[in-house]
């Protein structure tokens, strides 16, 4: 599982470095001071020990029938073959991807419009900004337990009060609706960090651009559509990428809210992989982790391409 998370984050800084560039990058071979390599070394060593070696070990295990301990034998691609026909695994991918897409859209819509509001001339702007950032500093599992209480007790009471049959039961206990609860709570926690990035983005747009537009008679909607959006496009891409990467790795909030239930309706890939440790199905879930790792790399590469293009425009 650990092997999955870092892929995009380590890849991300690359374009920035290349873009701003070390002077004379295009030159044949600029003599680089060896001290730069020395700076790189600790990170490289730690990354190798903590990420690369375990990742490779895990992939080797995925070709065995190991339970994580004791003797085991190589069984080739059997784990992978079974994996692709395992509805429990496939449905966890379906849930995770669907949930991530919905959450990314929701988070970015809310955060963007909230940022627009919080960068305009409103009263109590600073106080409001601090308030909206609070969810970010609370641990996911605590948020999940608090919301679980709200969904199981407070919301059903409200539902009974307005005699709505759907809301009278906890939506977390409803296999068709539980995912909505997971999306809402995840979004609640994820909005602040996206918000901060959007606020930074909006503040980076020089005021004279708007002044010029206003003089030319552009309406508010035109200004939003033709000035603000293109100029913060890079930030949107960053938020979408970072958000998506976080959401496909979802674990703590789901564990606290539904623990994958009802049934297996909200079991994420990360949770499925983790069952390999508790259930002694080590090698099989290592194969799952390897696939998940490849998907994460694919997403990271795709995102790198997109950001690089975006950077060129700016």
């Amino acid at each position: 599982m650990a092997s999955v998370a870092p892929a995009p984050s380590t890849a991300r800084p690359a374009p920035a470095g290349e873009r701003k560039g070390i002077p004379g990058r295009s030159g044949k071979f600029n003599r680089v001071d060896p001290v730069f390599y020395a700076f790189l070394l600790p990170a490289l060593v730690l990354f190798t020990i903590a990420i690369t070696v375990p990742a490779i070990t895990g992939i080797v295990y995925s070709f065995t029938n190991s339970i994580g301990f004791g003797e085991s034998e190589f069984i080739g691609f059997l784990n992978y073959a079974v994996l692709f026909s395992d509805p429990a695994v496939l449905s966890s991918y379906g849930f995770t991807l669907g949930f991530s897409v919905v959450t990314v859209v929701l988070v970015n819509l809310i955060a963007f419009f909230l940022a627009l509001g919080l960068t305009s001339r409103i009263r109590f702007r600073n106080a409001l900004r601090s308030t909206f950032v609070i969810p970010m500093v609370v641990s996911g599992i605590i948020i999940a337990y608090v919301f679980q209480y709200l969904f199981s007790n407070s919301l059903p009471q409200l539902g009974q009060a307005i005699s709505n049959p759907v809301l009278s039961q906890s939506i977390l206990a409803n296999a068709d609706l539980a995912w909505i609860g997971v999306v809402l709570v995840t979004a609640w926690q994820a909005v602040p960090s996206a918000l901060l990035i959007y606020i930074a983005g909006l503040l980076s747009i020089p005021g004279d651009v708007y002044e010029a537009a206003q003089i030319d008679g552009a309406s508010g909607r035109q200004r939003l559509w033709s000035i603000t959006l293109p100029l913060v496009a890079g930030y949107i891409v960053i938020n979408v990428i970072v958000g998506f990467k976080n959401f496909i790795n979802s674990y703590d909030i789901i564990v606290g809210l539904t623990n994958g239930g009802p049934g297996t309706a909200t079991r994420s890939v990360a949770m499925t992989i983790f069952t390999g440790f508790t259930g002694g199905d080590y090698a099989y879930q290592m194969a799952n982790a390897a696939i998940f790792f490849l998907i994460a790399i694919a997403i990271a590469v795709l995102q790198l391409r997109v950001t690089r293009g975006r950077a060129a425009i700016r």
Binding site: A173, G261, P262, G263, R267, T278, G280, D281
Partner: peptide
Amino acid sequence: PLTIPAEGYIQAMMTGSSIEGT
């Protein structure tokens, strides 16, 4: 075995999923 999410399946049957299908 824990690999089979039996508790989840049981919960699903209890809350309305088809017994036969589960």
